[in-house]
């Protein structure tokens, strides 16, 4: 077990670094957000995790033509992922369009 884990750590060392640093970056980047922006920020973050669509494209793009299950599910996944991305960014944009600074 320990051997497995040690091997895992060595194999995926770079990933582990990326994960740890990204966690701190995520915390750092939004730590000074004023309450006014909580909802748009949540919505913007919501759009960003739509990046999962790339996984859906890869799944769909490498599904063999006779594998109906993968094709159908992949097709569905791409639609859902696109919904998340497009809907997320458009909604955020609509919210932010209302924050016009007036002097």
């Amino acid at each position: 077990m320990w051997q497995d884990f040690a091997q895992f750590f060595l194999d995926y060392r770079d990933f582990i670094y990326v994960i740890i640093l990204s966690i701190f970056l995520g915390i750092e980047v939004i730590s000074n957000v004023p309450a006014v922006l909580h909802t748009p920020l949540m919505s913007g973050a919501n759009a960003i995790h739509g990046v999962v669509i790339i996984g859906a494209i890869i799944v769909m793009g490498h599904a063999s033509p006779d594998d109906t299950l993968s094709l159908v599910l992949g097709f569905l996944a791409v639609i859902l992922g696109t919904l998340n991305v497009v809907g997320g960014f458009v909604v955020t944009n609509r919210m932010l369009a209302m924050f016009k600074r007036k002097k």
């Binding site: 990204s22 970056l25 995520g26 980047v29 919501n46 960003i48 995790h49 990046v51």
Partner: peptide, 8 residues
């Protein structure tokens, strides 16, 4: 992208 959103 995923981890940023996860932690943020």
């Amino acid at each position: 992208g995923g981890i940023l959103v996860g932690s943020a």
